[in-house]
């Protein structure tokens, strides 16, 4: 991140209306420390990458629920493959897109454990479409954390099933063209007709408010899993500043400007 970038942040700050809450009435003893469920290894993600926020929030929820020793996570093929280094709970690395099927196998052996399939958009909504739909349709009692960054991050920025119309990627020079490439795929809406899917919600990470909503959604999904409710999925609209060729702040703005109108936030299917 270049030094000139600081000037840009400053500009944005001054342009932004002060949204500050009156400090005195705000929470006095609020603290934040590194979640116990995270290892010491620094995240390997690019600067400003949304994966870091989602992974940390997930660790916070697992800590708060006190379920670390009962949690089994999946580190997908994609940038989140690094998660196997970062969580202090048991981890499994499935093949590209097979997370929901692997999670099924784990959960059927260990029904009293919490099984979390963390997946990217290419992983979940392209190569793993069949596994996703059928795990949801079986009402498999697992939670999918779906990080939708509208691009294939790890492989250097190809079109994802969730890439926006007109979005430039390395495989859509000139932008995604619906005629040639089809339309951005809305996973929550797609799954919402399935009886087995009980909780499908979409959040983002563009502001503290949204990150907190993401955390609440993840917590709710895991609690539902602990109650044996069925298939739960939290879709998080996230950033890939590197492959979007933007700085982290522009990337957050791009979600708000381009993605949110197409991918509505909130519960798509409630429980």
């Amino acid at each position: 991140m270049g030094w000139r970038y600081m000037a840009e942040i400053k500009k944005k700050l001054s342009a932004k209306k002060e949204t500050s809450m009156p400090p005195s009435t705000q929470t006095h003893k609020r603290t934040f420390q590194r979640p116990k469920s995270l290892t010491d290894i620094p995240f390997r993600y690019c600067p400003g990458c949304g994966h870091g926020i989602v992974a940390r929030v997930l660790a916070e929820v697992v800590d708060e629920l006190g379920i670390r020793e009962k949690t089994i996570g999946l580190a997908p093929v994609g940038c989140a493959i690094w998660l196997e280094d970062h969580f202090e709970w048991d981890m499994v690395g499935p093949a590209h897109g097979r997370g929901p099927a692997v999670a099924t196998g784990i959960k059927r052996v260990l029904p009293d454990h919490v099984v979390l399939s963390y997946q990217g958009d290419g992983d979940l909504a392209a190569i793993g479409t069949a596994e996703m739909i059928h795990a949801a349709n079986r009402g498999e009692n697992i939670t999918v954390i779906f990080v939708n960054n509208a691009v294939y991050g790890m492989t250097q920025g190809q079109m994802a099933p969730t890439s926006m119309i007109g979005q430039e990627t390395t495989t859509t020079p000139g932008g995604r063209d619906a005629k040639r490439d089809g339309f951005p795929l809305r996973v929550c809406e797609l799954l919402s007709s399935l009886e087995g899917a009980v909780y499908l919600t979409r959040t983002t990470i563009t502001s503290p408010k949204h990150v907190r909503a993401t955390k609440r959604a993840i917590r709710k999904a895991i609690e539902l899993q602990m109650q044996g409710a069925g298939f739960t999925l939290v879709e998080v609209l996230s950033t890939c500043p590197t492959n979007w060729r933007m700085n982290p702040l522009q990337a957050m703005e791009w979600i708000e400007k381009e993605m949110v109108s197409y991918y509505p936030l909130g519960e798509i299917k409630g429980a």
């Binding site: 500050s20 809450m21 400090p23 705000q26 929470t27 006095h28 003893k29 609020r30 603290t31 934040f32 590194r34 979640p35 995270l38 620094p42 995240f43 993600y45 600067p47 400003g48 990458c49 949304g50 994966h51 870091g52 926020i53 940390r56 990470i205 502001s207 503290p208 990150v211 907190r212």
Partner: peptide, 15 residues
Amino acid sequence: TRCLNCTTMCPDVVI
């Protein structure tokens, strides 16, 4: 003010 906005937004658990 301990609003925790910074820790909430930080992708790298720095603060």
